[in-house]
Design a binder for these strands. Structure first.
Lengths: 198, 198
DNA sequence: CACGAAACTTGCGTGCACGCAAGTTTGCGT
DNA sequence: ACGCAAACTTGCGTGCACGCAAGTTTCGTG
């Protein structure tokens, strides 16, 4: 059961991130101060920083929601049926499949603004801990699980980097759908995952 | 030949990081403001942030120097003799071997202070770019090279995390020499490196 | 040598992150 | 139902990061 405390906290978190995204879309990211976000969510500016440690984080969280924790769950499920590598690749590509995308303009906002893009690319770091635990159920050594989890998170970051790349660098543009991109970036790690599982 | 401009810039960079470390050792990291560092190095506080983007960065740089760029060079050398995986592991362990360690107390300082530790663990991220280029000479697809470089950097970060871990978590302490730790953490990635090279 | 462009430094102003200590709310045991 | 302990919010104060525009230094070229 979930107490009042917990529910209020989650409500504040949601209020903050949604206020942040709405204001950023309305006025442009540069014209939104954390004081504005806090006021729109009905809390003090100081409280904002009890929930998010940077101005960008809340905006990104509105898009990301809690994708990272859902991935770990998805991997665990898939793990009963297939080998580790496949479970991870499937779970990740499934969770990063863009849903209805009411967030298409939000993503444009993020890829446009350097600060927001950085925060967005930092998000997959949150994969490491939950992923390590899942991997550890299939791999003896916790240290190995740690390294593999960190590598997978790094691969996801690289994929998102490519995907959100400011175009026109004169070189080949990667493009392709995000799931395809993720699959391609995770591919090189498959041998490592297979070897660890054996 | 290196122009006056370049030499001055490097001198300032060195002056800043050495002043930062000295002051941190003398007065404790909490009691050193960036204004103090700037003054000790003979530049304005604003200039400090043209060289380092956080207060911690300069202190860490004094210990790290330019290790990351040296690693890439070491890998390139070793690469003429052996396969990719071996070259990388050897080069990294060699470069992270603690030299004479006049910096032993500096490392204690870093592992002690949370902010400094974070900055220290962020340093290996600088491996990604140079390492990618080296790997790309042995691996056809640049994207694959990118992922592998990022994974190696992540493994190094994990190793440093363990090495600098605040002890006494009730669980097994890892310990061991840093080179050994690095070797252990890079081991799981070897199959991926071998597969990409083939 | 002279001079114009490019690189670098600096002061200023603004917003941000966060430690701390006081006030307020929630939860729990009796 | 009461009351205490723990969790959470808030205001305040401090130092930090960085955009901007003006001043200064370096460098290449005619």
């Amino acid at each position: 059961m979930t107490g009042l405390r917990e529910r209020k906290k989650e409500a504040t978190r949601v209020a903050l991130r949604e206020a942040a995204l709405r204001l950023a879309l309305e006025h442009g990211p540069a014209n939104v101060r954390v004081d504005d976000i806090a006021e729109a969510a009905g809390v003090s500016p100081r409280t904002y920083n009890n929930y998010f440690s940077s101005r960008e984080e809340a905006i990104v969280a509105a898009v990301t929601a809690d994708r990272e924790s859902r991935i770990a769950a998805a991997v665990t499920e898939r793990l009963s049926e297939t080998r580790l590598a496949e479970a991870i690749v499937d779970a990740i590509t499934a969770q990063y499949t863009d849903p209805g995308e009411q967030s298409r303009d939000a993503l444009l906002l993020i890829t446009t603004n350097p600060g927001l893009r950085t925060a967005f690319l930092d998000a997959p770091a949150a994969l490491e801990d939950p992923l390590q635990e899942v991997i550890a159920t299939r791999v003896g050594d916790p240290q190995t699980a740690r390294v593999l989890a960190a590598s997978v998170a790094a691969a996801v970051r690289v994929a998102l980097e490519q995907w959100t790349q400011p175009a026109g660098n004169g070189l080949v543009v990667v493009s392709g759908s995000l799931p395809d991109l993720l699959r391609r970036m995770l591919e090189p790690l498959v041998p490592a995952l297979d070897a660890a599982e054996a």
